[in-house]
Structures are given as structure tokens and as C-alpha cells.
Computed example of a mutant assay.
Amino acid sequence: MIDTNPQRLAALQTDSETDYSLAKIFFATLKREMQLALRRRSDLVNPLIFFLMVATLFPLGVSPEPTLLAILAPGVVWVAALLATLLAMDSLFRSDFEDGSLEQILLSPQPLFVVVLGKVLAHWMMTGLPLTLMAPLLGVMLFLPAEGMQGLMLSLLIGTPTLSLVGAIGAALTVALRKGGVLISLLVLPLYIPVLIFGTAAVEAALTGLPVGGHLALLGALLALGLALAPLAIAAALRISVSG
């Protein structure tokens, strides 16, 4: 039976237009951030170089023994990915704040959490995803056994978006400060600990032949919680920082 009630049809049309406009805003923000990121290629390369340098220098500072490096490899790769993600976090909202476009975004009628989610996704695609793709190379350099490669890739693929979401909260709180990079680290690093624990535990479980589904499920739960709450927290932090 077809519903011909005009009020219901109008409500359905309004909801569909709202969903389309939100999707349009999201993808427009994502496209803009990707274009801006490609123009600042140094910001893209620096986290990858840092990620590679940590894995390269670590054997020189500890020991080049393959057995020891294989044991430490999961933690080293995850800590390097965490710090590399944090390295690129300060510039997430900085350029928009300096040229005044952030204030225009805050004053616009479009939902701020949609814009924030698009910016965070662009940051992850330019930082977290390349780090995930580079992780097997670092695993080989650190003599990580082949059994742990799949766990390493999956844990980074699920965990790095959470790092971007949580780090964006710190970036939003310090966007009005001239030297907010150190303060971001102090605010965000304690919140990164659960992701670091479950990420390294997933790789170690894969190395010992244990099921990794539980650790990946916990990482997925953290990601779902971050997707639900972090955009709202980032939006509130931006309003506090800019108005203050």
C-alpha cells in the first residue's frame, strides 16, 4: 500500500534532502582537505620519514640481534606509528585558524561535526593509511615473523583512525596557541595508551598462534566510540578555543 499522506511525504523528502546535504558537506570537506594536503607535501612526507627513522635507528641503539628485534618489533612499530601520527596533528586546524576560515566554518549554519569528521578522515588518509601500508616494510627491517604481519596490518588499520580522532581533540584545544605541539602530546598521549596496548597485543597474539579477534574487536569498539563522541568533542573544543 502506497502512503499518499502529503505531510508524511513532505517529511520524508525533507529528511532525504538533509541526508544529501550532510553527505555533500562531508565529501566537499574531504575533497578540500585532500587538495590542501597534496599542496603541502612536506607535511605528508615528514611523518613517513619519522616512522622510517625510528625503525632504522632503534636496532642501532638497542641491538641488531634478530631474535631480540623480533620480540620488540610489535611495540616499536606501534609506538613509531603513534608518534608519527601525533607529529602531523598540530597542522590539522592550524592553517584554517591562521587564515580565518575556521571562524567562518564555526559561524556557518552547516553542522560542525560533519566538517570535523571530514577533516579527520582526510588526515587519516594522508597519515594513518600510508603508515599502515609502510608497516610491513618496517616489520621486515625488525625481523618480525611473517605470522605477525597480518595482525600488524589489521591492528594498524583499525587503530590509527582512533589515534587521529583522539589527537584531533588535542589539536582543537590548542589551535589558538602558538606552540601547541608539546601541549597536544601531554593531552593526548595518556588517551593513546588503550589503543597501544590492544594493538601490540593483537600482533603478539598473531605471533604466538592465538586468536586475534578479541583484540581487534576491542580496537573496533574504541573506533566506534571515537566516531560517536570525538567529532562532538572536537567541535566543542574548537568553539572554546576560538571564542577564548
Rank of each mutant, 00 (worst) to 15 (best):
D43P: 02
K31Q: 11
F58M: 12
F27K: 06
L12F: 06
I25K: 01
S21N: 13
R40A: 14
T29S: 14
N46F: 06
L36G: 08
A28V: 03
D15G: 02
D19H: 10
Q13C: 02
T67G: 06
I71C: 00
D43M: 12
F58N: 00
E17C: 01
T14D: 06
T14G: 12
D15F: 04
V62C: 02
E65Q: 12
A23R: 10
L12M: 15
E33Y: 00
R32F: 02
E65R: 12
L38A: 15
V62G: 01
D15W: 03
A70L: 02
T56L: 14
L48V: 14
I25V: 08
A55G: 14
R39F: 09
S42I: 10
E33H: 01
I25W: 07
R32N: 09
T18L: 14
R39A: 15
A55I: 03
F27E: 07
L38D: 13
M53C: 11
F27H: 06
L12S: 11
T29F: 00
R32W: 00
K24T: 13
L60T: 09
V45C: 05
R41V: 04
L38P: 01
T29Y: 01
L60I: 12
I25L: 11
E17W: 04
F51L: 06
F51I: 04
L30P: 04
E17V: 08
A37E: 14
F27M: 09
P64L: 11
L38T: 09
S16W: 09
A55Y: 02
A55R: 00
L36V: 10
P59I: 05
R40F: 09
A28T: 10
A37V: 02
M53A: 13
L36D: 15
A70R: 01
L44D: 04
I25M: 07
M34F: 13
F27S: 11
K31F: 09
A28W: 03
F26N: 02
M34S: 05
M34C: 06
S16K: 11
N46P: 00
L48E: 05
K24W: 11
S16E: 13
L60W: 15
P47A: 10
L12Y: 04
R39Y: 05
K24C: 05
M34A: 07
L69P: 01
K24M: 10
Y20I: 08
M34T: 14
T18M: 09
L68V: 12
